[in-house]
Nucleic acid binder design. Sequence first.
DNA 1: GCGATTTGACCCAC
DNA 2: GTGGGTCAAATCGC
Length: 215
Amino acid sequence: MAELQRHHQSDDGARARPDDVLVDDKKRVKRSISDDCISKEEDVVKPRHKQLKRGRFDESMSLETPVPHYDGRQWRKYGQKHINKSKHPRNYYRCAYRQEQGCKATKTVQQQDDSTGTDHPVMFTVVYHDQHTCKDNNGINLGIDDSETNSQSSISTISTDPYGRETPSLDGNKLLDKSADLITRNSMYEPADMTVFEPLDLDSWALDAFLRFGA
DNA sequence: GCGATTTGACCCAC
DNA sequence: GTGGGTCAAATCGC
């Protein structure tokens, strides 16, 4: 179904973009300009954010979950990338409150290659980077620092459990809704077999996610 | 119309 | 040189 929709969309997209060539041309022009006059362009166009790559993150935690989106946070997708030797693309999400509150939390979600069989629920590897420094809409700090009480409060505030179908009390939780919904439907009655790969250096944010999935 | 998502390009670490 | 994380314009959907 999702596949059909995707095809449908891409078909639509192909049809609905009579100016594809134009767009490409624009991009090409833009690129060639920047190639030709790099320094000049950089003066005019706002400089690209410094892109820090590997080793950027001080903290990260990975886990396997059939419901990568139900972690009680609001995430905004900012990228998708096909990863070498991996069947499925990796999706990149950052905290929805990044702009408002400067929350640096990000996560990557990648479907596992061997999870496409009918016997097992679709499993995703979710890697969380950095910690939430944001507060949710209720002004409750979803971030870390005070570990126990904080994780408690966030759990009680956002009683999210894919199996209980209680989602965060954010009516505008459109973020990630469709895919999350799909994924959840696919797997909501399956046991969540969670594996934490890293030593459990559980800050509350990690603990929060961990508890949420019924570790 | 606005906000979210998609997607190709860019850029840096390895 | 390659892989992978991020950006940002274009597009989509409500």
